[in-house]
Simulated scan of single mutants.
Amino acid sequence: MISAKPISHEAYGNALRRLTYVFAAMEYGSLRQAARELRVRESSVSRNVVKLEQLLEMQLFERDVRGVRLTEAGRAWTDVVRTHYEGLQEAFRDTARDNRDAKTLRIGLCAVAGGEFLKRLIDRFRKSCPDVSLAIEDIPREQWQTAVRHRRFDIVFAPELRTVTSCRAETFWQERVFVLMPAGHPLTEKRVVTWADLADVQLLVPVGTSGPLLDFHMLEGIVAGGGRPTVKICQAGQATVIFNVQLGQGFTLAGESFARTVTIAATAWRPLDGHNSLCSIKAFWLETNPKRAVLRLIGLARNMANMIPSQEYSHSARDR
C-alpha cells in the first residue's frame, strides 16, 4: 500500500516526487483522490504525471470521467520500478530517523572574546531551532582549521587571523581589549591605557584553547611611542596566567565581555585605547557542510550584527 502521509518533496527531488504521484494515482484510481491524500492540488498531480510520461515517452495512464487506470505498458513499467521506489523510500526514512549528527551542531571556541554577543546568539538559536542539540567545546588555536576541514566541528569562533583559504570566514563583532594588571601597579591610576603605556611591561600570553586574543605576529610587532611590551608566551592556560598577574609577574589581555563580568582579587582591569585596541571575532565554517543548522546560526549572527549599534561592543569601554 502507498502511504497516504505526505512525502517531503524537497528531500526526494523531482524524480521521486513524480513517482510518488504516479503510485498514488495508481492506488486510488483518481488524480483527485491522490491529490487529497497527498494534500496537494489535483493540477500538481496531473502535471507531474504528465511530465514523467513525457520523460519516458510512454503513456502510463488511460484517463476518463471515472478516473485513471494503468495502460499495459504503464503496468509493466511500474512493476519493475516499484521495488526500487519502495527501497528508496525506506532508505530516506531510515536516514532521517537515524542521522543524529544532522541534529547536532558542533561549535568550537578558540580564544574567543565577545562572550555577550555569543551568548545572545546561542540563546536565539536554541529558541529558533529547539530540535538541534549543541555541542560546544574549546579547541586549541593550532588545531581549529584541521578540525573544521575534517568536520569535527561544524563552525569555529576565533579571533581575527590572516587569510584562511580552506573555509569560509566572516567577522560578526568586535570588542575592546582589556588589560589585567596587578592591583598595586602605577597604571591602575589611569582610566584607560595605550600600547605606549605598556612599553617595557611583560605581557603574558597563554597558548592553547584560552589564548591569545591577538595574533602572535601582531603582538610582537606592536610599536608604541618608541617601546613595546615584552611578549612572553606561556605554556599554560588562562587560570595560571591570571595567577601570575596576581603575583605581579606581568599583565595579560582579555575581551571586554570577560573583563566586565569577572572580578579577580589583587588585580585591576583597564581598557586598552588607540590603534590595535579592538579584537575582531570571526566564524569559520565549510560552505560544503550540508547541515541546515549551520546556515541558520550564520543567518542569526548576521541579523544580530546588523541590529547591534556599531559601537555597542567596541567602544563601551570608554564609559567605564
Rank of each mutant, 00 (worst) to 15 (best):
Y85I: 01
Q145H: 06
R36L: 12
A111Q: 03
T194P: 06
I7C: 05
F153I: 01
R39A: 15
L52I: 09
D200K: 10
R270C: 02
R260M: 12
V177S: 00
I2Q: 13
R36T: 02
I222K: 02
W173Q: 06
E72H: 06
A224N: 08
R151E: 14
K5V: 14
L70Y: 07
E62C: 06
M218V: 13
G114Q: 02
V201P: 00
A183F: 03
P182N: 02
S8L: 07
R18F: 04
D98N: 13
E27L: 04
N244Q: 14
P186D: 07
E287V: 08
L31C: 09
I264N: 04
I107M: 04
I222E: 11
G114N: 07
R69G: 03
L118P: 04
V22Q: 02
E62I: 11
V65K: 15
C110T: 14
R63P: 00
K51E: 13
G87H: 04
E86W: 01
E86D: 10
G226A: 05
R106C: 05
A73S: 13
G29H: 09
R47F: 08
P182W: 03
Q249V: 05
Q235K: 14
R149N: 05
D200R: 14
Q143A: 13
E116V: 12
L187I: 04
V156R: 04
R120E: 15
